[in-house]
Design a protein around this nucleic acid. Structure first.
Length: 497
RNA sequence: GGACAGGUGGCAGAGUGGUUGAAUGUACCGCACUCGAAAUGCGGAGACCCUUCACGGGGUUCGUGGGUUCGAAUCCCACCCUGUCCGCCA
């Protein structure tokens, strides 16, 4: 979320930043947002003058009543009576305008950092030469991981399809253990060597958390949600519709028969719940009538969501920063837009496990922390001796909340390609503003929003893929990297059971 | 999930319609006393927003969102959360 004051004071930088991201309408966007801001401030100035007058008068009424001056009080009350409607209308308008401005700002992505390369898509990403590691293993006729896994009898997409549908998998036996070992190994490295606090977070979170990290309101279709339309919620909704419409329906003095009223309510409630499921929920979030918007939970697409939101709505002390957290969790992605890509194997799944790194820092710390986090993620690949490279994402390839991102790409011999295995982003104050997370210095003075960073350390599913493909043996077995052997009871290779 | 109780400033905790943005304690900052600290005394201090070149002025904020009222921490409605008991359960 952008600070409207920043946009107001430095409109050029805002427009240029969005243009660098490839948004053609950045000037129009700035126009829109600034017009809303101006109108809102004009309203506030007017409204607050009225509120001040009302407050003064109300105090005087209180004093008059205390002195038993009923006539004086009555006179004052008459004087202020007219203000009430105007103030209430103004407050209503204020709510609408604030929500409008907030909604407009909520869908605008972060501005790229100055040192991020310009470009439209992944082809313009720039390798970070000094971060490259290892060399591609020499493997004759390398086989893809799913063929290896299926041949071992320990990776079953067919049964997963039967039970859950496409893009799910059963891992069994040593491959299941390997996933668990990788998670434990990564957590140990990050907590013991890099000072991240190990966390086991909630996997189901509320809309507000998704908003905080930037998944909502724009990327609802990428997430899985629980259906909140309980029978109770339907009842509340009907009750609300009845209460708010009974006057206009005339149920009291009944030009419309009660049965007809009930039918209308039923149909409105039904379409209301359908609209709810189809529409972006945030548009109505905490603005509409309470019982009308049901609470739902969504499955986290990454532990970034619960780890970052851990500090939402809080004011942190500068001394406790940076805060570092790591978690090993399943991640769930609906990935509606990705159909047709990586349809075979474990590269792109609805459910996968990942070890996540999150740092909460001061603005001064975030740049160095970003490098440090990338070091931590790379440390895993180095310990596993997996060939990889690092690229700085160009402006057109970065995620919504990021101002700078490094992708780590591991070499997959079976695919004959480098594939993303980690993505480390510095989000600057962008998420902190959405979450309302600030910090204060030792003197107790507020210092504004914190900076947030997140990175995969690493995607466990894809690491498992990388191990299968890089450590495959001519006989179809898989060697186990030395660093992992202690986590697998000293085992040195995985063979068909 | 049900019943009951509760959510107030960094923390604790008064306050049930009228100079209450909020007593009091504690933590924090400044000053005095002290060689210094502690104790004590005096003073200061929340957050967000609008407005002003500035000094300043104003608004909002007592879980959240609405409502009643000239005026709401206080009354009404809904929701969220916490605690206790009951139920259910890995």
């Amino acid at each position: 979320m952008h600070d409207i004051r920043d946009i107001r004071e430095n409109r050029q930088a805002f427009e240029r930043g969005l243009a660098r991201r490839g948004m053609a309408d950045s000037v129009k966007l700035a126009d829109d947002v600034l017009a809303r801001d101006k109108a809102l401030r004009e309203l506030l100035t007017r409204l607050q003058a009225e509120q001040a007058r009302r407050n003064d008068a109300s105090k005087l009424i209180g004093q008059a009543k205390a002195k038993k001056d009923e006539a004086g009080a009555a006179a004052l009350m008459a004087e202020v009576a007219g203000l009430k409607d105007s103030i209430q209308a103004g407050e209503q308008q204020q709510r609408e305008m604030e929500a409008g401005l907030r909604d407009a700002l909520a869908v605008i992505p972060n501005i790229p950092a100055d040192d991020v390369p310009d470009g439209a898509d992944e082809k313009a990403n720039v390798p970070v030469a000094e971060r490259a590691f290892g060399k591609k293993p020499e493997i004759e006729k390398p086989i893809q991981h799913f063929e290896l896994g299926e041949a071992l009898g320990q990776m079953d997409f067919e049964r997963a399809g039967k039970v859950s549908g496409a893009r799910f998998v059963y891992l069994k036996s040593d491959l299941a253990k390997l996933e668990r070992a990788l998670g434990a190994f990564m957590l140990d490295v990050h907590s013991n060597e890099f000072g991240y606090t190990e966390v086991s977070p909630p996997l189901l979170v509320r809309d507000a958390a998704f908003f905080g990290t930037g998944q909502l309101p724009k990327f609802e279709d990428d997430l899985f949600f629980t259906d909140p339309r309980t029978s109770e919620w339907e009842e509340n909704t009907k009750k609300w519709i009845y209460e708010t419409t009974r006057d206009s329906l005339g149920a009291g003095s009944d030009p419309v028969p009660m049965a007809r009223v009930k039918t209308i309510i039923e149909s409105v409630a039904k379409s209301a719940s359908e609209v709810f499921m189809l529409e972006n929920t945030f548009a109505t979030f905490d603005r509409a009538q309470p019982g009308f918007v049901p609470l739902r939970h969504g499955l986290i697409p990454t532990a970034e969501v619960p780890l970052t939101n851990y500090v939402s709505d809080e004011i942190l002390n500068e001394a406790e920063l940076p805060l570092r957290m790591t978690a090993f969790t399943p991640c769930f992605r609906a990935e509606a837009g990705a159909a047709g890509k990586d349809t075979r194997g474990m590269i792109r799944m609805h459910q996968f496990s990942k070890v996540e790194l999150v740092s909460i820092t001061t603005p001064e710390q975030s740049g160095a922390e970003h490098e440090r986090m990338t070091d931590a993620a790379q440390a895993i690949l180095k310990k596993l001796d997996l060939c990889h490279r690092v690229v700085t994402l160009c402006t057109g390839d970065m995620g919504f909340s990021a101002q700078k991102t490094y992708d780590i790409e591991v070499w997959l011999p079976g695919q004959g390609a480098f594939r993303e295995i980690s993505s480390c982003s510095n989000c600057g104050p962008f998420q902190a503003r959405r979450m309302n997370t600030r910090y204060r210095g030792a003197d107790g003075k507020g210092k504004g929003p914190v900076h947030t960073l997140n990175g995969s350390g690493l995607a466990v599913g894809r690491t498992l893929v990388a191990i299968l493909e890089n450590y495959q043996q001519p006989d179809g077995s898989i060697a186990i990297p030395a660093a992992l052997q202690p986590y697998l009871g000293g085992k040195t290779k995985i063979t068909k059971a």
